[in-house]
Computed example of a mutant assay.
Amino acid sequence: MPDPPSLICAAAPRGELSATLGSVKIVILDDYQDVALASAPWEQLPPEASVERFTDHLDNQDALAERLGDADVVVVMRERTPLTAELLERLPRLRLITTTGMANASIDLEAAKRLGIAVCGTRRSTNATAELAWALIMAVARDIPQNDRDIRSGKWQAGLGIDLAGATLGVLGLGKLGSLMARYAEVFGMKVIAWSPHLTEERAAEHGVELVTKSELFRRGDIVSIHLRLSDAVRGIVGAAELELLGPEGRLVNTSRGPLVDEAALVRALTEGRIAAAALDVFDVEPLPADSPLRSAPNLILSPHIGFVTQRAHRLGYTQMLEDILAFTKGEPINQLN
Rank of each mutant, 00 (worst) to 15 (best):
A158Y: 07
G175I: 05
T168P: 08
W42I: 11
S231M: 10
L174S: 08
L68G: 01
G15Y: 13
V73A: 00
S256G: 07
D281G: 00
D34R: 14
V285I: 06
W42M: 08
R183H: 09
A279C: 06
A279S: 03
T255Y: 01
V192K: 00
D143E: 08
W134N: 13
P92R: 14
D284Y: 05
P259D: 05
E16S: 07
Q33P: 06
L136G: 01
G166F: 09
I275T: 11
R203G: 03
A105R: 05
K330W: 15
Q44W: 10
G22R: 14
T168D: 04
L160C: 09
G317Q: 06
L266V: 13
L230S: 12
D148N: 11
E216L: 12
T20E: 11
L302Q: 04
Q311P: 10
A40S: 10
Y32D: 11
A19M: 10
Q44L: 12
R235G: 02
D324I: 04
R268L: 09
R80L: 15
T84D: 11
K25Y: 00
A71N: 04
M77T: 13
G239L: 02
I237G: 01
Q157V: 12
G221L: 04
A118I: 05
G175L: 04
A167P: 04
H314N: 13
G101F: 07
H314K: 14
A158Q: 13
L164C: 05
N299S: 13
L246C: 11
T84V: 14
L294V: 08
D150A: 14
P92A: 14
G22K: 15
L88A: 08
I237A: 02
R295T: 04
F328N: 02
G317N: 05
I275F: 01
I137Q: 00
A141C: 13
V75A: 12
A269P: 03
